[in-house]
Design a protein around this nucleic acid. Structure first.
Lengths: 157, 157
DNA sequence: ACACCTTCGTTCGAATTTGAACAACAGGAG
DNA sequence: CTCCTGTTGTTCAAATTCGAACGAAGGTGT
């Protein structure tokens, strides 16, 4: 009857996976943040905005769409896009099909900045994560965390 | 000769692993943050402080040690410990062996708060991550991300 | 004992993040 | 057309985060 009120705690393997995930995530973020800031003056978040825009058709996305891809708050995105706009890396356009809509678009300068910042960033991601893992580990990671993400996306429609 | 200056970009599998990691990490953090705040009024960071303290001998740790385990900045920890101290969940003691040292210690109230907050948190971690993955996936994740963390710990001694 | 370099935790200012509130608009049911 | 509900992006205050600078103390070599 202990199982009725007692939660199912994590066994050692499960705890190791969870702690490994949290720790690796924090360490990676800190390291990447530092590298990007030193090399290009960009925060990781700002860099990701440029990446997502450059991957989108027309190098542009609506604010809400972009916020979803980045997994950040709408207000947080408003702030960062304003920063990037001041830096000349991103421009705001109004959406033709929706008067409320705002489209963030990569500028030439933004594309250039990305071209300059990407190599160092990718190299570090490779050094700290990709190249540390085997092909099989990478596949499991991609598939597993893909499922986790999918689950979370559905959760709070 | 293209490989001399051109970085090794991520192939589709590698990119999927990296994006899956970043996305899952962000989504999980957001979700856990919300749950903890609503259920117990704690931030994820504050919760983690209580966890690490309760796992330490004497329910206490020195500030620097704790900051390392949490993977956060010293100043950030100072702030959060102050918050937890105001809430009566943590107390500051001076270190016997080092006049400069400050020891953060879990109070009875802090232990009780953790006892109350842990079940809901663990249940959600289980629902969103642990139970979504197979035993094998968890093992790979633990081992792989453990290696990644170890690598990062050594990097900037 | 002395200088020298490192470590400890805090303080400070600046930057960032968040959720709630908001006004304006979209889209459908009637 | 006319409500009515949901969406969109921004603003706002409050909370949090970080790195640099700091005073104070540890530890080492001479």
């Amino acid at each position: 009857m202990s199982s009725l009120n007692e939660p199912r705690w994590l066994d050692p393997d499960e705890a190791a996976a969870w702690r490994g995930f949290v720790t690796a995530s924090n360490l990676l973020n800190r390291r990447l943040e530092r590298q990007l800031k030193e090399d290009s003056g960009l925060s990781h978040q700002q860099y990701e905005i440029l990446v997502h825009l450059s991957a989108a058709p027309g190098d542009s996305l609506r604010m809400t769409e972009l916020a979803d891809k980045l997994v950040t708050s709408k207000s947080g995105l408003t702030y960062q896009v304003t920063q990037l706009e001041r830096a000349g890396l991103v421009a705001r356009r109004s959406c033709p099909s929706d008067v409320r809509g705002v489209i963030a678009e990569l500028t030439d300068q933004g594309r250039e900045m990305l071209r300059q910042a990407a190599p160092g960033h990718v190299a570090l991601v490779r050094e700290l994560l990709i190249d540390v893992l085997s092909r099989e580990q990478l596949a499991v990671l991609a598939e597993g965390l893909g499922a986790v993400s999918a689950r979370l996306r559905l959760e709070d429609v």
